[in-house]
Amino acid sequence: MKFGKIIAAGILAVSLTVPAVSFAADKPVVGLVMKSLANEFFKNMLEGAKAHEAKRGDYTLKAVGMQSETDIETQINAVESFITEKVDAIVVAPADSRALVPPLKRAMEAGIVVVNFDVALDEKAKQEAGVELAFVGPDNRAGAKLAGDALAKKLGEGAKVVIIEGNPGADNAAQRKLGFEDAIKDGKLSLIDSRTAHWETEEANSVFANMLTANPDIKGVMAANDSMAVGVVKAIEAAGKTGQIKVVGFDNIPAVQPLLKEKKMLATVDQFGQQMAADAIDKAIGVLKGGAPLKGWVKTDIKLVTSDDVK
């Protein structure tokens, strides 16, 4: 039903400017396959895509979301109906990095431009299917390195730091940890402990408070997401060490804006989730308009956010 509503909205938006009859012929149609729209991150992403469509005005967007994070069948059905409808491009954030490979292969065989964003499809599955498919998305490792570098610059060589990790086993958690470690190596910081807090504020608060007890001379903290950074900042406050320990995070969620402003947090990283779908659509249209086919990993923007960026 969401799908219908979006199309209706699209038709409404288009019919304001051009006669409805001609739109299908004039503009390329882009099918957008999203993950769970119950998730704030993807909801914002879809809104970003819709705004992008209205702004560019040279393509028609058809979007499909899912009921839940694991509703893979809905995504496969969406890809197949897009093939039947003969859309010009499919832009997809796959819910499963393997299951989506075969239907996307069929789409490519039907001459549709396919762009994979948000989560990369599995390399091995792609190889087995004989599919060459680019991935458009952020480099978590590079992003974490940006934040880590900022911390290293502030603290100087030899400062003792700790990492608060995301869920063990999650790909983005692993990438961000690697990025932090890169920065520690380059900045010659001293990593004295690294523990998971499962992306969780309360757990990060407890875990970091205990780490601080064990190592009272910690000077910096790298948290793999901002929710955990919030917990860390509270633990520093409780220990009466505000200002003495610097914290960096990741994601640039609204809740850290006041912390950045009050300088309780040094920096975070924005990966522009809201624009990610729009970026992928741009890339797809570029190919449609005769641009070179995408290859490998097309990295999207990441940006370090500090107190200077917070108004």
Binding site: E202, N205, S227, V230, A255
Partner: peptide, 10 residues
Amino acid sequence: RLNIASPIIG
């Protein structure tokens, strides 16, 4: 204790 309230806590 944590100065936030989020639907994914707990």
